[in-house]
């Protein structure tokens, strides 16, 4: 796999000159680059972060990822390979520990077939199309360094299987989507749940600046005792976006056949863009997780500076009801 990436980078450099033919087609940070005249675009992203929590300093090279995508006629494809938590240095009471994960993970690998304006089919590994946050989950594209708990405990973040969508574009945009997984995960170590079955059904309604989305689903989670547990979930999402302001909120719940495993998980986030470079963020979260037996309320105050949109410097402070969870985060991320 490493040789594959080296090959792509080599081809990119080799053909790079051909793509710079005029102002519109020249390379722009955050937009990737076409390889010659091929239906292949390459790019990537990385993020570095720092966290101070409960007396511990943690320095991390978190993501180093490579993207390759393209399309021809009705078919398109996407490949994303990533080093996750590549290098971590932690320090507490003058004791240092380091961790490395040099395995290249398959974050996304799928092909799309577009039948017409209304119908499309996807096969492979992809971000589960649940809610709004999980569609753009990488550090540089989200508003804070951290992810809301809602996006990590209610549903599997990745699905390996089939995704079908119906879209209608008239006065309002309507989407109905269906996800089916009935096989092992393409990269089981790189998902928040280990599972071999996932079904979901969702619908999205968008009118001008407002989008509403509702999803329901079930998945078969592997447990530590080598058995499986069937879990059901529901998530409703709201997004409102203008030039200056963005509001996003998601509310979810998860249950097993016997009881609620997560009775509720909720977040509401407002982002105010002071101008093109500076944004202030407030996020409120609350959840109850009966598997971990925790309940927490969180208030997050953040500030993001983007000298260019694909470059983000972010700081945030999290106030938790569980006081030893209070933390400060700083990250630097770039999409190229």
């Amino acid at each position: 796999m490493k040789y594959f990436i080296i090959l792509i980078l080599f081809i990119t450099i080799l053909f790079a000159e051909d793509t710079i033919t005029n102002q519109e087609q020249s390379y722009q940070l955050g937009n990737g680059m076409q390889v010659g005249e091929l239906p292949l675009y390459v790019g990537g992203y990385f993020s570095l972060d720092y966290r101070y929590k409960d007396g511990e300093n943690r320095y991390r090279i978190d993501d180093i990822a490579f993207l390759a995508y393209g399309g021809y006629e009705k078919i398109s494809y996407m490949a994303e390979l990533e080093y996750k938590e590549f290098y971590t240095l932690s320090e507490k009471d003058d004791a240092y520990t380091t961790q490395k994960d040099t395995r290249l993970h398959t974050e996304r690998l799928y092909g799309d077939y577009n039948f017409n304006e209304n119908y499309m089919l996807r096969l492979g590994k992809f971000n589960s199309q649940i809610g709004f946050w999980n569609l753009l989950p990488i550090n540089v594209l989200r508003d804070t360094s951290s992810n809301p708990y809602t996006t990590d405990i209610i549903f599997p973040r990745f699905t390996t299987g089939l995704y079908a969508a119906y879209n209608s574009y008239n006065n309002a945009e309507i989407q109905i989507d269906l996800t089916i997984q009935h096989n092992e995960d393409l990269d089981p170590s790189y998902n928040n749940y280990t599972m071999d079955e996932h079904h979901s059904l969702g619908t999205t309604y968008t009118q001008e600046n407002i989008s509403l989305k509702a999803s329901i689903g079930m998945f078969d989670k592997y447990t530590s005792t080598n058995t499986t547990q069937v879990l059901y979930y529901a998530l409703v999402s709201l997004k409102y976006e203008t030039e200056k302001f963005q509001f996003m909120s998601e509310l979810g719940s998860q249950k097993s056949t016997q009881e609620y495993t997560t009775p509720y998980a909720f977040f509401a986030q407002g982002v105010y863009h002071l101008n093109q470079e500076h944004a202030g963020i407030i996020r409120l979260e609350s959840y109850e997780d009966k598997v971990q037996n925790t309940q927490d309320n969180i208030a997050i105050f953040g500030y993001t500076y983007r000298p260019l949109y694909p470059i983000a410097f972010k700081t945030e402070y999290q106030f938790h009801k569980l006081q030893n969870e209070n933390q400060f985060l700083f990250s630097w991320s770039v999409l190229f």
């Binding site: 937009n31 990737g32 995508y69 399309g71 990488i138 001008e208 093109q276 999409l335």
Partner: peptide, 25 residues
Amino acid sequence: LHMSFNRLKSYWTKQHYLGHRPPIS
């Protein structure tokens, strides 16, 4: 499109992650 130049710039950066390219110019 009801979008400003800056909002479209951020839109197309997000679309790059999703594997979509802007129209030709």
